[in-house]
Design a protein around this nucleic acid. Structure first.
Length: 463
RNA sequence: GGUCCGUUCGUCUAGGGGUUAGGACACCAGAUUUUCAUUCUGGUAACACGGGUUCGAUUCCCGUACGGACUACCA
């Protein structure tokens, strides 16, 4: 059974796809729950009816799963019933709870009704207007809590005003429903982003009014864009699905994110999620904000790609883009992957490279040819074609290939760049790319011949 | 504006009263390679500033500057 003395949660709002910052918060909570053998709760804070979208929640859950972040209690995917003893875990299904508590507060004189002000957005919900409820807050009182990451933080209530806890449409606001649910769901540690630091005081007021025990809080550093502003849509790619679509491996994103605002306090950097569970320690949190660096993410991606076996990588690639399997057999693709793997930085690149080996997709862009000396291309490729026609095995071996190269070099008096780039065009359609001696033995001779002829024809059409 | 948080190479970070301030990404150079890439080797590059405390401060304290968050019937 879980350690009920260590319960953490991630509480996203279904207003968009999973942001990398949210993913990191979820990751840290997940890691902490596993490390302490506690429970990880996934609660949905969907009280902002106007901003919720129906697809957002499904996408966020999918991305969490994709990342390998799993939860013990909370909402399930695909509209399955919630799991866990403290449900429901969607706030819109818990409305009576908040309303009841707020009304009690009014009875105790700790809160009061206010007239709805037409200026506010609630009217647009077309619900009959009723009164909102505001929490009365003590004047000139000092509040303090010991942040798990930042140490003691103080504030005086003078800087706060009475605030709305129930809107005129009957729905609670975040600062009211959040502490209530954390209490009811027996959350012991609240790790969330720094943007919530100031809210903590409002929530402290709610805990106090309701006589609830206050959990421990830890405020994570923010993830910033290159301009040092909070990372947001205008910085470009900020949601996990974008990185998935770019061919980033979930383990690479996890690895990169884990090192933003947290450190194992040594020189190690390559981690799989199991390693992180083992090493994770709240003492490694860093209060200073971190700038998101896509280059380093890419670096982690190459590391994790190389860490995969050829077969495992093949599975990832076809899951990423299954069109690579058209007219190609699995063993051939896996062999190619073993050659591509050492130079690959993401799945998209691998998929594109694989497609070069698909005969149906063989093409040379005319602008590519224009960059080269046509006469050189013609001489080298003709010799290549001639050498191929003198061979009649199904495949040519690496040593045969090297021998052919030598002959072509001798006869054509071309070497180096001129020689190899010309050949690469006739074989792969582009002048740069993979190591030919590794790749040529994998391609059927007849296919090599066809490509050489086609290249020659294309050159003739140009000159 | 007010409240709060933060500040070590360009970036992520380690360290911590006495260090040649360490690592990684990026960048640059050299080597290898048929090209790009990979790989290898090397290199540039940081304690925001001013005051304390101290024999000594990048490290502790206080200010200043700069950056950020929050300041909703958003979360």
């Amino acid at each position: 059974m879980f350690n009920q003395h260590y319960r953490v949660r991630f509480a996203p709002s279904p207003t968009g796809s999973l942001h990398v910052g949210g993913a990191r918060t979820a990751l840290f909570n997940f890691l902490l729950s596993r490390k302490h053998k506690g429970a990880f709760v996934l609660r949905v804070e969907d009280t902002d009816l106007l901003r919720n979208t129906n697809t957002a929640l499904a996408e966020q859950l999918r991305d969490l799963k994709w990342l390998g972040i799993d939860w013990d209690e909370g909402v399930s995917q695909f509209n399955a019933p919630d799991i866990g003893p403290f449900g429901p875990y969607r706030q819109t299904q818990r409305l009576e709870i908040y309303l009841k508590l707020a009304e009690d507060l009014v009875k105790n004189g700790k809160a009061y009704y206010v007239n709805s002000n037409e200026d506010h957005g609630a009217a647009s919900l077309a619900t009959p207007l009723r009164k909102a409820i505001k929490l009365k807050i003590p004047t000139n009182k000092q509040y303090e809590f010991n942040d798990l990451i930042r140490g003691p933080i103080k504030i005086n209530t003078n800087t706060l005003d009475d605030f709305i806890i129930i809107r005129s449409n009957g729905l609670p606001v975040y600062n009211f429903s959040n502490p209530i649910d954390d209490h009811l769901m027996k959350i012991t540690h609240v790790y969330r982003a720094e943007e919530h630091l100031y809210n903590t005081f409002k929530q402290l007021l709610v805990y106090e009014a309701l006589n609830f025990k206050v959990p421990l809080f830890g405020h994570l550093s923010l993830i910033l864009g290159q301009d040092k502003q909070k990372l947001s849509k205008r910085h470009g790619a900020v949601s996990c699905d974008v990185y998935r679509e770019k061919g980033i491996l979930p383990e690479a994103l996890i690895n990169y994110l884990s090192l933003l605002g947290w450190s194992p306090k040594n020189d190690l950097e390559f981690f799989k999620i199991e390693d992180l569970i083992e090493k994770f320690d709240a003492a490694g949190f860093n209060a200073a904000p971190a700038i998101f660096d896509e280059k380093k993410l890419n670096w982690f991606n190459t590391l994790h790609i190389r860490n995969l076996s050829d077969v495992a990588l093949y599975e990832r690639v076809i899951a990423f883009d299954n069109s690579v399997t058209l007219n190609s057999d699995k063993t051939f693709l896996i062999k190619l992957i073993s050659v591509i793997k050492p130079v690959a930085t993401n799945l998209e690149m691998i998929a594109n490279l694989l497609k070069r080996f698909n005969e149906d997709l063989f093409e040379i862009k005319s602008e590519t040819l224009l960059k080269f000396d046509i006469t050189v291309l013609k001489i080298v490729i003709s010799l290549w074609n001639k050498a191929l026609s003198k061979t009649d095995n199904t495949f040519i071996s690496e040593s045969q290939f090297l021998q052919i190269i030598e002959e072509i070099s001798k006869e054509s008096r071309h070497s180096g760049k001129n020689l190899y780039q010309s050949l690469r065009i006739a074989i792969l359609g582009t002048p740069s790319g993979l190591d030919l001696k590794k790749v040529v033995p994998l391609i059927k001779l007849e296919s090599l011949k066809r490509r050489a002829v086609e290249t020659l024809n294309q050159i003739d059409r140009m000159s």
